[in-house]
């Protein structure tokens, strides 16, 4: 990429969303034997916005998040479009992808110990990305120190010289967050970043993540199985089921007015500590992946409202209340 190209890309990026995924389809293999993974996934993350991606196992939420970095399963074919800050991810070559991952988008994972090289010092981990961008080593070290202070590591100067095993899980996740934000990305992809942490540690790390994101204007895609967590911290939430988006709603609306039968069923299946003690209602069957889902609406074999017309075609997304929902009869859900 030439300097000229970079400049134009940067110009369009300031106008574009942090992440735009439109009609993303993903399949392994081709023809009759193709295994579909994602179908028509559309996700938008504005600048500085926190967007949740919620679903159970096999819903495709992690695959969707990874697509923003151009990371696809081996042998998978992607259709549709994925843009990060104006950069076309699906069309990007190796160099452009590397540049994207280095400067525009960062990802944090569930297990910080798997994301960080155990034999290298924390200081090396934090300066690596900066050095790769050509930041002088002294300046990179100063930035790393500053970042560790911001994420609330005690004795940040000493921490730079320590190894990952000398940190607890919560502290190490803070280090990983510092590393992810070190390059000033426009987009942060957080894949279950607090699932492995204790609840009180989770609250701390979320507070930190939200604070850092707010001051820097980073867009965040927050992938989680935890509906309560998504609703508590996200501006908007997408609910995924079997490789498709079934509902998009404002974080707060998700609880008060779920529009998709699946969202409603998830809420009724989750025990809560708030309000009166209510019976939980189990959803029959088990979560499906796209490849094993029934034709038409993928949720219809578990849905209490399903009817013959649910089998005809995959329901189109339509507006209902404050949600966008892929269901043929959302009015019966909210009733």
């Amino acid at each position: 990429m030439t300097v000229q190209d970079k400049k134009t890309a940067a110009d369009t990026a300031t106008r574009a969303d942090a992440l735009g995924i439109a009609g993303l389809g993903l399949a392994i293999g081709s023809g009759e034997d193709a295994v579909p993974l994602l179908d028509g996934v559309t996700v938008r993350v504005g600048r500085g916005e926190t967007v949740g991606l919620v679903g159970e196992s096999g819903s495709g939420k992690s695959l969707t998040a990874r697509s923003a970095l151009g990371m696809f399963p081996r042998g998978a074919r992607a259709t549709g479009s994925v843009t990060v800050g104006g950069v076309d991810v699906l069309a990007a070559g190796r160099a452009a992808l590397r540049d994207l991952r280095r400067t525009r988008a960062s990802m944090i994972f569930q297990d910080p110990r798997a994301a960080i090289n155990p034999v290298r010092r924390v200081g090396d981990y934090l300066t690596e990305g900066l050095r790769a961008r050509g930041v002088p080593s002294r300046e990179a070290a100063a930035t790393a120190l500053d970042l560790l202070e911001q994420v609330g590591i005690r004795d940040p100067r000493g921490a730079l010289r320590r190894h990952p095993h000398e940190f607890s899980g919560g502290m190490l996740q803070r280090v990983v967050i510092a590393g992810a934000l070190s390059t000033g990305p426009e987009l942060l992809l957080a894949d279950e970043p607090t699932t492995a942490l204790d609840v009180t540690t989770q609250a701390e790390v979320i507070g930190l993540l939200k604070g850092m994101q707010r001051t820097r204007g980073t867009g965040m895609l927050f992938v989680t199985h935890d509906l309560d967590l998504a609703a508590a911290i996200c501006d908007r939430v997408y609910v995924m089921y079997a490789g498709r988006i079934v509902e998009e709603a404002a974080g707060t609306a998700l609880f008060s007015a779920p529009a998709h039968p699946y969202t409603k069923a998830l809420l009724e299946a989750s025990p809560s500590v708030h309000g009166d003690r209510t019976e939980i209602r189990a959803i029959r069957g088990r979560p499906r992946s796209l490849a094993e889902a029934p034709s038409g609406c993928a949720f219809r074999d578990r849905c209490p409202l399903a009817d013959d017309d649910c089998a005809v075609a995959v329901p189109a997304v339509r507006a209902h209340g404050t949600s966008a929902v892929a269901c043929v009869r959302p009015e019966e859900v909210t009733r």
Partner: peptide, 17 residues
């Protein structure tokens, strides 16, 4: 602390602190 650490709409992270 345990109770306030549970996410809820309008979650008050300052209160957790």
């Amino acid at each position: 602390l345990l109770l306030d650490s549970i996410p809820v709409p309008g979650w008050d992270l300052d209160r957790v602190a």
